[in-house]
Design a binder for these strands. Structure first.
Length: 272
DNA sequence: ACCCAGGAAATTC
DNA sequence: GAATTTCATGGG
């Protein structure tokens, strides 16, 4: 298989981007690469100076991978704009300047963030792995795609027992069924006004405001989304003195990811 | 044993 | 309606 090369890439760190809590299927390899599966394509990605290398990708998928890593957006300009809003924002962006917001598969983002509720990232990763291993298509030896909505829709909640997601099993099945039968149309939601998009997603049992915001940001690339989890609420109260998230404007979602990762990496700031 | 985890549903007040 | 409890599971 071939290797895709993107030259002159700025503001991208694979480790920061793939290990900052926005996605759950990339595994760091001993050689420094990251192995993952996106839209049924298994690849290993590497950084080499200002080049991004994608092993196992076809030239036909160049646009797909540029899209996935959001290579067309000028993150330097976004960071400059955000840093001017608040000094803590500037510091958070400086801590992990190579974070980018991925364009994940919408259905994968939906299920992943349903699983995320009242859970921790390590266990979320394990549950997603087991979900793929049990119900995803095997695309290579021991490598599985994320399950389709149709496949999961045919199951009952108890069939998910092997993935050990507990009370979230029935939420996963409800989401899969509503996507499979068109009750929830993720591609249609992509183009809706924000509040309407949120309401559409919240038809699903187990999807509230926070999970809907994560699906919109990580799955549908709505960069104005600003998911507020326990870390973000603490950060906004303690580091930003209760600043209104609206202050971050059209790129609030990128600000959110810098702040989330910064806060999670500095728990000592929230001890007292 | 107890508390928490990228919350939301169910129940109670 | 707003506040509280419950929901599985695993790690610290």
């Amino acid at each position: 298989m071939s290797r895709l090369i993107f030259d002159n890439i700025r503001d991208l760190s694979l480790k920061e981007t793939l290990d900052c809590g926005q996605c759950f299927r990339w595994k760091e390899q001993p050689d420094g690469g990251f192995f993952g599966v996106v839209r049924g394509r298994a690849v290993t990605v590497y950084s080499d100076g200002d080049r991004l290398l994608i092993d196992g990708a076809s030239e036909d998928d160049r646009a797909l991978w540029a899209d996935y890593f959001d290579l067309q957006l000028d993150y330097a300009a976004v960071k400059e704009q955000l840093a001017a809003i608040h000094p803590e924002m500037a510091q958070a962006a400086r801590f992990a300047p190579g974070i980018r917001i991925l364009r994940q598969e919408p259905f994968e983002a939906l299920i992943s963030f349903i699983i995320s509720q009242n859970n921790n990232i390590k266990r979320i990763t394990g549950i997603v792995d087991r979900l793929c291993g049990c119900f995803g298509e095997e695309i290579a030896d021991g490598v599985y795609a994320f399950p389709t909505a149709g496949r999961l829709a045919a199951l009952e909640a108890d069939d998910l027992a092997p993935i050990r997601a507990g009370f979230r099993h029935r939420y996963i099945i409800d989401a899969a069924r509503k996507v499979a039968d068109g009750t929830v149309d993720l591609e249609l939601i992509r183009g809706l006004p924000y509040d309407e998009a949120r309401q559409q997603l919240m038809q699903i049992t187990g999807v509230g405001v926070k999970v809907a915001d994560c699906v919109l940001l990580y799955g549908l690339h709505r960069l104005e989304s600003f998911p507020l989890d326990v870390w973000m609420k603490r950060a906004m109260a303690r580091l930003f003195d209760g600043l209104d998230p609206g202050a971050f404007g059209d790129y609030a979602g990128i600000a959110q990811q810098y702040i989330f990762h910064y806060s999670r990496s500095h728990p000592e700031k929230f001890l007292s």
